[in-house]
Design a protein around this nucleic acid. Structure first.
Lengths: 163, 163
DNA sequence: CTGAATTTGCAACATTATAACATTCGCAGA
DNA sequence: TCTGCGAATGTTATAATGTTGCAAATTCAG
């Protein structure tokens, strides 16, 4: 269940999605949480690509499927999914992305390509460790970490060598 | 010019502010940038506390001083100040805070207390290093980093030992 | 089947941010 | 001093993102 998604490489994305959906069902069952139709559909939409998706994009997608929903529907579903670690919010983009490590305890670090828009979630012990140590030197009790790195992914570096 | 602000400790905040304003003037002069009245006033307002301030809070403050401004005025001033590293945007709060290390090359790490709202900017080499190394393992060329840690500052831990 | 709790629908609204265009200001050169 | 150009600001409107509050529907245990 680790080292799964490599958004910057070609891969069988359908498998990506079905894996994520299976994980989600398992995790919800395990917690006695209800993965209702709407919630499941929202998760699926989020997973349709590795690009973070805005809440209103999800809304539009739902609408295009005939499910006329209002913003609260989407935000509630997203809240639920975040609560169970199935999606993450990318604060710098006001957008949401499927969690590649659902069920694992982790502090996500995101590598966001400003060119193609794909985002890779990474879990790196050395990073979390350094962050918590730095916080400790200030006697700060850290509870949650947002770490979002913007730059160029390998593919896009190749296409535009520099600038 | 280092190890200046300790927002979680009592300190001479007026000195904090005048130091920041002096730095700002120096940096702008050095770059041939114009620190106009509006921009200077916005910076001063941002620095009035160590709590990140929303753009509309700044706007309200300006209004209360008789300077009737519209949102673009504030956002433009903030853009300018960000450009010269005089303020940072806290993505997780949609808010802005004065930069404690203006003029130094740095990757800010913010420790944000969810109780008192104060935010401390920290520059830690080991953290930046770990982040860039992690990005490198994915052949990702990082350009900018957002690192925001939420938790409890020392003062607030003392007041509410746990929860 | 019934009742309580969860989930959803819906309308209105709040907050944050930007677009487009007119006007003014500051300053360098004639 | 005047003139003109680019930078900065004013102004209005609007876009994008997110929330509140309440009513209706659904789910599920007993």
């Amino acid at each position: 269940m680790s080292a799964r998604a490599l958004p910057y490489r070609p891969h069988d994305h359908d498998a990506c999605v079905s894996q994520a959906m299976a994980d989600a069902r398992a995790i919800c069952q395990q917690h006695g949480a209800r993965l209702t139709t709407t919630r499941e559909r929202v998760l699926e939409i989020i997973w349709q690509s590795h690009k973070p998706l805005g809440a209103y994009d999800v809304l539009a997608k739902l609408a295009s499927e005939g499910h006329s929903a209002a913003p609260p529907t989407v935000y509630r579903a997203l809240d639920f999914l975040q609560q169970y670690g199935l999606v993450h919010r990318i604060a710098s983009l006001n957008a949401f992305i499927g969690c590649a490590h659902a069920g694992e305890l982790h502090t996500g670090m995101f590598l966001i390509c400003r060119c193609c828009g794909n985002a890779l979630e990474l879990t790196t012990t050395s990073v979390s460790k350094a962050i918590h140590e730095a916080a400790s030197t200030q006697a700060f009790r850290s509870e949650s970490v947002i770490l979002e790195v913007t730059g160029l992914c390998p593919n896009c570096q190749a296409e535009q060598p520099d600038e």
